[in-house]
Amino acid sequence: MDISLLTFSLMAVVVVMTPGPTVLLALSNGSRFGFTAAGYGIAGAAISDAVLIAAAGVGLGAVLAASGFVFNVVKWVGVAYLIWLGVQMLRTSGELHLRDHPAGDQNPDKPRPYPAIFRKSFLVAVTNPKGLLFFTAFLPQFLTPEEPMLMQYVTLAIVFIAIDVAVMAAYATLGARAMTFLSARGALWIDRVCGGFLVTLGLGLAFLRRSAA
């Protein structure tokens, strides 16, 4: 690779630190369910990174950029899911399920929504066409044509996912820590703020065009 991994890492940090749907979900999950449960969402988002990078590597990003029909199908699925998820968070009751903080859990025997947490974070990332278009445009800048492509993609994927996981873990920790001094009403407002941002991101995605992605 002509450009060092350090440069790639610094750019990845800037990209990941910009609040997006998965970061907002990590914050919300940490505040409502605790860090352990939020980890399932982080895992879902990390797997979505791997899926999108693999898709970009095999050229699906180019197909998305070239086909208006495919792009619009993926875009509107993403728009609908983001807005739906945001509305659900806006309508939340603020109920806590903190396995990490048993004192705040009024029903410790209640099943934990780990699969739902994983699924939401995975789907919110993988249905966003901006992710695939971003990787399609971003990763090739750090590839050397003379070297094996597979190993280069794997290396960049590992670095990017590690940074993404670290940032989401920081937000999840922030949310979980906040619940040591916030009440259930605090969790309610965290959910509502994050839900409002998700709806806003969904509406913004609705205006996304291929030329601007």
Rank of each mutant, 00 (worst) to 15 (best):
L6K: 00
L6F: 05
T7H: 10
F8W: 03
F8M: 08
S9L: 14
V14D: 09
V15H: 04
V15S: 07
V16H: 07
P21W: 06
L24M: 15
L25P: 00
L25D: 03
L27E: 00
N29C: 12
S31G: 14
S31A: 14
S31T: 13
R32P: 12
F33R: 07
F33E: 02
F35Q: 01
A38G: 06
G41K: 08
I42S: 09
I47G: 00
A50Y: 09
A54E: 12
G61F: 08
V63N: 09
L64D: 00
A66I: 02
F69K: 02
F69E: 14
F69L: 11
V74P: 03
W76L: 14
W76A: 08
L82H: 05
I83N: 10
W84L: 04
W84K: 10
L85Q: 11
G86C: 05
R91G: 09
E95K: 13
E95H: 08
H97R: 15
H97Q: 13
R99N: 07
G104R: 01
G104L: 14
Q106C: 08
N107V: 12
P113Y: 04
P113S: 09
Y114C: 10
P115F: 07
I117Y: 04
I117A: 05
K120V: 11
T127A: 13
G131N: 15
L132W: 09
L133K: 06
P140E: 08
T144Q: 06
P145Q: 14
P145N: 01
P145C: 07
L150Q: 05
L150V: 15
V154A: 15
V154T: 12
A157G: 15
M168C: 12
A169Q: 02
A169F: 08
A170P: 06
A172Y: 07
L174H: 03
L174A: 15
A176W: 15
A178C: 11
M179E: 13
A187W: 10
W189R: 04
W189A: 02
I190T: 03
R192F: 01
V193T: 09
G196H: 11
G196S: 05
G196Q: 04
L201F: 15
L201E: 11
L203E: 09
R209A: 15
R210V: 10
S211K: 07
A213K: 10
